[in-house]
Design a protein around this nucleic acid. Structure first.
Lengths: 278, 278
DNA sequence: CGCCACTTTGAATTAGCTCAAATTCCGTGG
DNA sequence: CCACGGAATTTGAGCTAATTCAAAGTGGCG
């Protein structure tokens, strides 16, 4: 895929993380598809993602809502599958996983969540949580009662827009995760996992060259539909190919010297034959 | 959310959409799925997505919004990846698939959508669609401008609740699909696919004993992360085990004589060891 | 009737899993 | 400070399930 350099790339984000290079799936699409002539509503709905997005969430929350703060440590449970739902959680700091489990005991991490993400949406339709949310690190969440949020959003519609965008963003992330699980071989799946992680960090203005994976190989494996051995092997292979590096002292810290290289690695797996152009 | 289900709302809608008949079959489902008290999760899998749920969407829409109707035929595109987003689509009748495609050309159906489901959420955060939605059959969608919907939902908060519940329901479905992809072997994955399909039909008061899969084996395979051959083999095996039956004339019509048997089949694969009871 | 796309089935290949052993990390207590 | 033990990780060696490749069968539709 030729990287159609994009007309107006963000010059520089607030923090030093400029990975803008990574093909945010969506942007390249614009170029990839038949140029769609009816571009009338380009400005109708402003693109609402990126660094300013999560910040907006937090800011709006502070302005228009009363909410609680809750500090958490690693392995704390935010909510548990089966509990009654009445409040949502907005992540202020920290890292969280949500795990889904089937009645027969099958279990799988269903997503990773960062600063600015919401937790608890899964309880909305039924009034009862369908997953559990667990902290992977120390952090803080802001708690908002769902009803209060709905009421506040009548006064301040932007609040609702932000929340809808957040939900929709989760949908998109899930879809991408499914795509990876369904179409990528093990190595590339692990690479994609790291890339998405870096992507999520970059979106929030955090550094992406140094990732601390607060998960065991088993957790990663579950998340990706692989065994822990496969994850370990994949990471070793990625390290051997120099697309990642293990930080000395502790193999849980992973460096990504070059995001593009990681992205290319995934490409190279999907295009096994030397496809010259297109 | 307390569903104020009044058995007979709108007597006859303008369009002949005669759905009514709150169906008790769904209750059977509620009993069917969480029936497995294996371990702790008796309540772990809550009654997912209420029945009258989709009905409410359609009713509220009619009351509080102006919307367009659009009839579609098989293979029509509702929206295409990359197009600008400004309207949402509520499915009145028919069956739709949403396909996600990565910049490198990898493609995967990301979900199936039925009566009462919304299409188009994926455009919210970015203002541009990240997937394409395609009709698998003739049907009708109601179109609503996103901005109009937000405004209307200020006047009628229930509208927002319904929409949020719909989004959240999609999140749950995606999570379940991921779980299946990540934890089930091929045969069970196909079985689960059929079971979820039946489940979706039951939720809407449609018959579940006779499913017409309007998808090719290749589509199903893509959706489940399998090859078309694997899907074909899996279906053959399921038929051999009598948990499904092919309708004579056309292997695209599948009968499920006994949903419980299908469910048991999945169980039996996940508990390979002769686990006597529990 | 005949073409074409979809499907089924078989045989060979392989990616990823299971089983098993060795190694490293980290907290705990001497 | 160092020794110890448990947990996480790495790596290897078969094995199995799913893929790939290939060929034959079926149905729909002009």
């Amino acid at each position: 895929m030729t990287v159609t350099s994009d007309p107006q790339t963000q010059p520089g984000t607030a923090s030093g993380a400029r990975i803008e290079r990574y093909d945010t799936r969506l942007r390249d699409f614009g170029a990839l598809l038949p140029a769609h002539p009816s571009g009338r509503s380009a400005a109708a709905v402003p693109p609402r993602r990126g660094v300013s997005f999560w910040r907006e969430s937090l800011t709006l929350m502070e302005q228009y809502l009363t909410f609680g703060r809750r500090k958490v440590r690693a392995d704390d449970t935010i909510y548990r599958c089966g509990e009654a739902f009445d409040t949502l959680f907005l992540i202020s700091t920290g890292l969280f996983k949500v795990v889904n489990l089937a009645p027969d005991g099958r279990e799988q991490p269903a997503g990773l969540y960062f600063k600015g993400d919401w937790l608890g949406f899964d309880g909305i339709p039924t009034g009862r949580h369908g997953c559990s949310a667990i902290a992977l690190d120390t952090g803080e969440v802001w708690t908002v009662r769902y009803d209060a949020l709905l009421q506040a959003s009548v006064r301040e519609p932007m609040l609702m827009r932000v929340m809808l965008a957040a939900m929709s963003g989760q949908l998109a992330r899930n879809r991408d995760a499914m795509l990876a699980m369904g179409t990528l071989p093990a190595d590339a799946r692990v690479a994609d996992f790291l890339l998405q992680w870096a992507h999520a960090l970059a979106e929030r203005g955090l550094r992406t060259d140094q990732i601390n994976v607060h998960m065991t190989r088993a957790d990663i494996g579950n998340y990706l539909g692989l065994t822990l051995e496969s994850v370990s092997r994949a990471l070793s292979r990625l390290a051997r190919c120099k697309v990642i590096e293990f930080n000395e002292k502790g193999r849980r810290d992973i460096s990504i010297p070059n995001l593009q290289a990681l992205s290319d690695f995934i490409q190279s797996v999907t295009d096994p034959a030397g496809r010259v152009l297109q």
